[in-house]
Amino acid sequence: MKKVSLEINGKKVTKEIPDHITLSSFLRDTLNLTGTHIGCDTSQCGACVVHVDGKSIKSCTALAADLEGSKITTIEGLAKNGKMHPMQEAFKKTHGLQCGFCTPGMIMSAVDLLKSKKNPSDTEIRDWLEGNICRCTGYQNIVAAVKEAASKMKS
């Protein structure tokens, strides 16, 4: 067992955890933050993407013990004061989600993109989302959502 202290969605969390648990399992099973999803075992589907110290990572491929002192944002921490993040709003507006399973990871990934590229092209968005698999949407409305969010966040 290891004691880890980290900040999750702005709240300090200290827990005693088994050495081998992944961040995704820590979030889902220990903290009941079930918005982070598990869709594969090979780090490819991206349903589990969260931000660690501001950067998107796959939480199924990180050990919770490895993240001592990190600041973590999950899908549950994206809305502020009950108001959804512009990326969440944009996904709603453009129908960028259907079953919703890949959505949390997709959104966390897309939010990270806009940190480094304020005005990404379609190609840049599609390339960036290489690590997020969606089976429902054919991606077109996801691309539209990211563009919509980019334009809202600029203004």
Partner: peptide
Amino acid sequence: VERKEDKRFLTGKGRYTSDIN
């Protein structure tokens, strides 16, 4: 019409079977 069900999925509040304990 924008989807009524979206908000819970967008905010991580969807409740899938594996979320149930």
